[in-house]
Simulated assay, not measured.
Amino acid sequence: MAMFHLYNPNSGEHFYTWNAAEIDSLVCAGWESEGRDWATSAGGDLAYCLHNPNAGLALIITF
């Protein structure tokens, strides 16, 4: 299952989704689509985001 990344240039927020309707809705609301970020299994593995605010980096991992 493909996961897509969207970015809100007004708030600096990042959002990840696989739902095409959600992507379309957010793009219409001013979010920028940054395309496919990664793929997960059809079983829906949990993904965790670790954010380092000092470096401005995020690491997305699964177990």
Rank of each mutant, 00 (worst) to 15 (best):
S25M: 03
A39F: 01
N19D: 09
H51G: 02
A42Q: 05
N54M: 06
P9M: 13
T17F: 04
L57Y: 13
I61F: 10
F4L: 06
A39P: 00
P53T: 00
F63P: 13
T17G: 03
N10G: 15
G30S: 14
H14G: 05
H51N: 08
L50C: 02
F63Q: 14
H14F: 06
I60L: 14
M1N: 04
E32K: 12
S11N: 13
D37C: 11
W18C: 01
L59F: 05
G12C: 12
A21K: 03
A55T: 12
G56D: 10
L26M: 05
I61P: 06
A20C: 02
I23R: 00
M1P: 06
D45V: 04
E22I: 02
A39I: 07
M3P: 03
A29L: 15
I60D: 07
G30W: 12
G44P: 00
L57H: 13
E13P: 03
A29K: 15
W18N: 01
A29P: 13
Y16V: 04
A21Q: 11
R36H: 11
A20Q: 11
E32R: 09
E34D: 07
L6T: 07
D24S: 03
Y7R: 13
G35M: 10
A21R: 10
H14M: 07
F63R: 15
S33K: 13
A39Q: 05
G12Q: 14
L26W: 00
M3H: 03
N52W: 02
A42L: 01
Y7H: 14
L59S: 10
A21V: 05
S33D: 15
L59K: 08
E13S: 09
H5L: 02
L6A: 02
L50Q: 06
H51V: 12
E34F: 05
F63D: 14
N10M: 13
R36W: 06
M3C: 08
L6N: 07
D45F: 03
D24I: 00
W38M: 10
G35Q: 07
M1E: 04
S33R: 14
C49I: 04
E22W: 00
L57N: 13
V27S: 10
I61D: 10
S41N: 01
E13I: 08
G35E: 12
V27I: 11
N10C: 12
F15M: 11
L59H: 06
T17D: 08
H14V: 00
E34S: 08
T62W: 12
F15Q: 09
H14W: 07
E13V: 05
G43D: 06
E13N: 11
N10F: 14
D24W: 00
F63A: 12
M1T: 03
P53I: 01
A21P: 02
A39S: 08
S11P: 10
A58S: 15
G35P: 12
T62H: 15
A47F: 02
N8C: 08
N8E: 11
T62C: 14
D37A: 14
E13C: 06
D24C: 00
E13Q: 14
S33V: 11
A58C: 13
L59T: 09
